[in-house]
């Protein structure tokens, strides 16, 4: 499966923050974009992993023997 490209720009961050009512200055948006670019580089690995037999419906009961 092709992984998302995660085009994390300050402008995209600002728009998303406004949509969710998260106060953010321009400087904070720029800083967050840099931080998230690193984080999303790791997230991309999740999309390269074969999860064919791992369904989200069995997420929660991991404590059941």
């Amino acid at each position: 499966m092709p992984e998302p490209r995660y085009a994390v720009t300050p402008e995209a961050i600002r728009r998303y923050a406004a949509m969710h009512d998260i106060p953010l200055t321009e400087a904070e948006a720029a800083e967050l974009a840099t931080q998230l670019a690193g984080g999303f580089a790791g997230i991309a690995a999740l999309w390269q992993t074969d999860v064919g037999a791992a369904e989200p419906s069995v997420i929660l009961p991991i404590d059941r023997p």
Binding site: G39, L46, V58
Partner: peptide, 16 residues
């Protein structure tokens, strides 16, 4: 800023 898709994907990889 992580999307719902990323969150669910993380849980699927978690299950693996």
């Amino acid at each position: 800023f992580l999307s719902g898709m990323d969150y669910v994907r993380a849980h699927r990889v978690r299950q693996k």
